[in-house]
């Protein structure tokens, strides 16, 4: 039996997307580039019938996520949350994100949100994966979000964040401390 196998187009896409997702968390704040813009590549790379998701009121995204076999669920019980961060109301919706338990801090949510990079609020990041400190600018996120994040993370309890701008991706794990400048 021959084992020489070529990757399918799907294999190539999901392997590439995973590598970007991984490096984004390993080097918080540094921009990575997904193989395609938007949440689709992320969904097919991570989510399947073993996962739950929450996509706020985004019907098109919900339908896309349903195709992965993932199950929609309330925010409090969800692995993967896709949500806007533009208004104070958006942010208030996210106060119940899962932060895991001390024995299983990995049983926590991952939040995916859209924003614009390179303008707006300046943030100074420190923590694992960052040499010294790193300052980035993110626009389109309501200021209350960063306060909410700071108060809900009690490391190692907490949730991990990915911010998307088209096909550009920034990861901010719970281990990153953010100073709002």
């Amino acid at each position: 039996m021959t084992l020489s196998i070529l990757p399918t187009a799907g294999d190539i896409r999901t392997n590439a997307a995973f590598e970007e997702l991984m490096w984004a968390l390993a080097r918080p704040g540094l921009e990575r580039r997904l193989p395609t813009a938007g949440f689709r590549a992320i969904a097919e790379t991570l989510i399947d019938r073993e996962c739950t998701f929450h996509a706020a009121d985004d019907v098109a995204l919900s339908e896309l996520l349903m195709l992965t076999g993932g199950k929609p669920a309330a925010i409090e019980n969800t692995d993967y949350v896709f949500a806007p961060l533009a208004t104070a109301e958006d942010v208030a919706m996210l106060s119940g994100l899962r932060i895991g338990t001390l024995a299983y801090p990995d049983e926590a949510a991952t939040l995916f949100a859209s924003a614009r990079f390179g303008a707006g609020q300046a943030l100074r990041l420190i923590g694992p994966g960052i040499r010294g400190s790193l300052t980035i600018r993110i626009d389109g996120v309501h200021p209350s979000f960063w306060r909410m994040r700071a108060s809900s993370i009690h490391y190692p309890l907490g949730w991990d964040l990915y911010v998307l701008d088209g096909d550009r991706l920034i990861g901010i794990p719970r281990s990153t401390k953010i100073e709002v400048l």
């Binding site: 995973f18 073993e50 926590a108 281990s175």
Partner: peptide, 17 residues
């Protein structure tokens, strides 16, 4: 692919903590 997705999800958590 389902085995890989599981390992990807776990690896991301490992990097985050």
């Amino acid at each position: 692919e389902s085995a890989k997705r599981e390992i990807r999800r776990r690896t991301l958590k490992a990097v985050a903590i």
